[in-house]
Computed example of a mutant assay.
Amino acid sequence: MTPAPTGARGLRVAFAGTPVFAATALRAMAQAGYEPVLVLTQPDRPAGRGLKLQPSPVKLLALAHGWAVQQPHGLRLDGRWADDAAAARAALQAAQPDVLVVAAYGLILPRWVLQLPRLGCLNIHASLLPRWRGAAPIQRAIEAGDACTGITIMQMDEGLDTGPIVLAEPLAIGPQESAGELHDRLAALGAELIVRALRLAEQGPLPQQPQPAEGVTYAAKVDKAEACLDWREPASVLARKVRAFDPVPGAWGWLDGAPLKVWRARAESQTAQATPGTVLAVDAGGVRVACGEGALVLTELQRAGGRRLPVADFVRGAPLRVGQSLAAPR
């Protein structure tokens, strides 16, 4: 098999990634002259009401540019998807990449992948490592009330986000910023930093700083069940959860026995002698709900099957009344 053509800058770069976060980096790399010699992305998944198979954003970008694509279900040569892994290895070997850039790929890279490129594998991670290693660093940073996060370009090893740091740059988290909004800013920063790292790689050995032993935290994947608001918690905690789980999976309470999505909210320190989850007031400024501490003011809501609406529009079509409970039905 004839190797794919080398990128305009001379460094042979392969890419592994799946969602929009990854596609943002891949597009920036190509614009900087680092067109991929091979793209790895997750297999097409069912989506939408018809559950039709949909290609990932990275695959769509690759197809639009005519880049070679592989979509293995797994990469372990001795696992369930051994045939997929063998095909991916053959494609990578034929492409002869100097480096593999990885961004939100969704598959664990076994040793054979990490060792195949001459310069190894560089990961674009959406936190300042070692804080928030793992699957959901953006959501967990907001949920925890962090004032700052950032992007780390990491030389990958066999651990979970444990490799040495090549580049890192902080990014302040806005006081009302949602995970979706922060995601877009981090994606742009990640794209900028990976291009910078590839340019450094062309000049010589990359800088590598071991991660600090202190400050390690893990960002577990977000489960839909944890997005159900527990009104016994402080309003400040619930406000952070609303931001952290926007747009996926969306924080929610209950209204008339059906889920009620809460997309925007703010915490107030006022106290009330009411059971947590009880509606305290309804007006054009928001729906005030009693919490374990303070009150949460809901300003953007969505009923099942409906649209996201400002609270003033929502209450016209689905009236809420003082004394009503938004807690889970018993």
Rank of each mutant, 00 (worst) to 15 (best):
V13L: 09
A14T: 07
A14Y: 00
F15I: 09
F15K: 03
F15V: 06
F15L: 10
A16H: 05
G17D: 04
G17S: 03
T18P: 00
P19K: 06
V20H: 15
V20T: 15
V20K: 12
F21T: 05
F21P: 00
A22Y: 02
A23C: 06
A23N: 03
A23M: 02
A23E: 08
T24V: 13
A25I: 05
L26C: 04
L26M: 14
R27G: 13
R27K: 14
M29V: 02
A30C: 13
A30D: 13
Q31G: 14
Q31R: 15
Q31W: 11
Q31I: 10
A32N: 06
Y34C: 07
E35T: 13
E35C: 13
E35F: 10
P36V: 09
P36Y: 10
V37R: 04
V37P: 01
V37Y: 04
V37N: 03
L38N: 04
V39A: 07
L40G: 02
Q42L: 14
Q42K: 14
P43I: 02
D44Q: 05
D44G: 08
P46D: 06
P46A: 07
P46K: 07
P46L: 08
A47D: 12
A47E: 14
G48R: 04
R49I: 08
R49N: 11
R49C: 10
G50E: 15
G50T: 13
K52I: 15
K52F: 12
L53N: 10
L53T: 08
P55D: 09
P55I: 08
S56L: 03
S56G: 03
P57K: 08
P57S: 11
V58G: 00
V58H: 00
V58R: 01
K59C: 10
L60P: 08
L61G: 05
L61R: 02
L61Q: 08
A62L: 06
L63P: 12
